[in-house]
Design a protein around this nucleic acid. Structure first.
Lengths: 231, 231
DNA sequence: AGCATTAATCTCTTTTTTACATGAAAAATA
DNA sequence: TATTTTTCATGTAAAAAAGAGATTAATGCT
């Protein structure tokens, strides 16, 4: 068999990307989901997605879809899993590569998202989703929890300056359990990736809590090294 | 836009699966790789792979490809990652979903593998591979290491009955470092997933080492629970 | 019989994790 | 101005886990 027929004989498939977009706002972990515009299942809740084009990688497709709905580029995104069941999409056979993204809600383009019928919902508010999107969210949450244990990803979700309480409440949201304040502080500071600022945040206390900022160099070094951060 | 044109407008892609097949034999971690039969790159080393058909899921495609070369079904297999760069395959645009499998080398059909030009090679013997297959192996090794920390996958690679030394040397191979005998024993036994047999294996010592067998129920329970097993 | 070799156990030390209580700062209130 | 309230910030002791040393056990070999 020559090369041409080898490739020519193989079947072709529709390939989509779906994005599980996490954000953290007002102490709550949220997901960006939207109402589907096309049949089948028009009007139903779904993840943000789109088809992979001829001239783009799957990663690029995911970034494109994300930017299209949030206006953000250069954001933290990881491939989650490829969902390849024959009948997972009821409209046609579509293989979907799912990605999860972590964004700072404050930074994104809210009107743009609204225009696309996208909404930020807390975990417990998520309605029934189309196809296997519910499973994708489940898997993404598991991956996020896992990832948070080995990489200091929490920072991706917080504003540039944040207090230790905010960081802790993010982890509490991710793991859905309360953490000991003192030990959390001890542990996270021992990673030595944060810079303590003179500034204080007084929105939640009279005394005011010191703001921190992560040190990009140490942060990147730690990300590469993949240091364990067990909670 | 109606449903028909929504799906009809989207481009279609060749989708392949590639399998990183790990085995453990004679104290060494090995990989099954083969010589490619078709152009381009015919004769070069590559992973075992194939195209996803219309009527099968990507998981099924991977299982099919694996059975085709090893004769084994019902084996431990995990999806690794979807590789979607536009030019990753020099023959055509092919999106590849990679899987890694763990098999007991003794069980597999060696003549069948040979027939396909497949060879078991140790990690340090792996030659340059086509496309991004080298990267896939790297990623699979990282995933295996990670996975071994959270799931007692070691058992998938060992024969039914094994000694603690064999199990330890498997972990030593996976992590490429020597482990303390006493502490390894303490740790692994504390998981309480193994059954000590009366039988002894005398191939490597005069005294003989007790054989163990994993307890399927406890093993499955532990796999579900995902207990941490840090080395 | 004594030696060599790997297996197995026991114990002690060091390190890490966990649990827990109190003082400090700053603003609001009386 | 003193008192109260609220959250921030810190230290220490007990418990658990990991690491390392030393000893005993079984058995074939010289």
């Amino acid at each position: 068999m020559n090369a041409a027929s080898f490739y020519a004989k193989a079947p072709k498939h529709l390939v989509a990307v779906d994005c599980i977009i996490f954000g953290f706002d007002e102490g709550k972990l949220k997901l960006l989901i939207m109402q589907r515009k096309v049949a089948p299942m028009a009007g139903e809740w779904s993840l943000v997605g789109g088809f992979v084009q001829e001239d783009e990688s799957t990663n690029e497709a995911a970034a494109r879809v994300l930017e299209h709905t949030t206006g953000l580029d250069d954001i933290y995104m990881n491939q989650l899993h490829c969902y390849g069941d024959v009948n997972r999409d009821t409209g046609a056979r579509v293989i979907s590569v799912a990605y999860y993204a972590l964004i700072r809600i404050k930074n994104h383009d809210k009107p743009l998202a609204r225009e696309h019928g996208a909404h930020w919902l807390e975990l417990h508010e998520i309605p029934e989703l189309i196809f296997d999107h519910g499973k994708m969210i489940e898997d993404a949450l598991a991956a996020l929890r896992n990832n948070a244990q080995f990489h200091p990803i929490g920072f991706e979700l917080l504003p540039e300056k944040f207090t230790l309480s905010q960081l802790r409440s993010l982890y509490e949201e991710i793991y859905q359990k309360t953490l000991d304040k003192r030990n959390f502080r001890k542990k996270i500071l021992s990673l030595d990736v944060m810079e303590k600022l003179e500034e204080k945040d007084k929105t939640s206390s009279k005394k005011g809590a010191h703001l921190y900022r992560f040190d990009p160099e140490r942060y990147e070094a730690l990300k590469r090294k993949g240091l364990v951060f067990e909670i």
